[in-house]
Amino acid sequence: MLMEKPSAGLWRKIKARYNLVGNSCKTCGKAYFPPRIVCRKCGRESKMENKKFSGNGEVYSFTKIRVPPDTFKDEAPYIVGVVKLDEGPMVEGHILENGTEIKIGTKVRSAFRRMYVDGEEGLIYYHYKFEPV
């Protein structure tokens, strides 16, 4: 109910959500995922260009969500984390449990999964997730 059901909102960022396409600033070289409109360092002097990230990185922090928002009420518990991508940026995402113990420093790669299914008749939102290598 309260969650936005952003069919256009998902579509707008589909390259980022499916394929980790972020960007980087030509002025200073800093890489961003998710993509930013303006570089945090360079402000109006920034020049952003698309950059695809490998999806490889390591777990910087994580937790298992046991009390989820409405939209994930049948999915709990699930692990989310902040992953430091090899290219630098830190990004939040689900971390799949595939038998490898998840710890700070665990190496992960990106995977493709459903993020959220809007009931029986609504859209299915696909997204990157991370899984231990």
Binding site: D74, E75, H94, L96, A111, F112, R113, R114, M115, I124, Y126, K129
Partner: peptide
Amino acid sequence: PGRDEDAATIAVE
């Protein structure tokens, strides 16, 4: 399939 898997995610992987 996992709860977050379907024919599309499998085809993508």
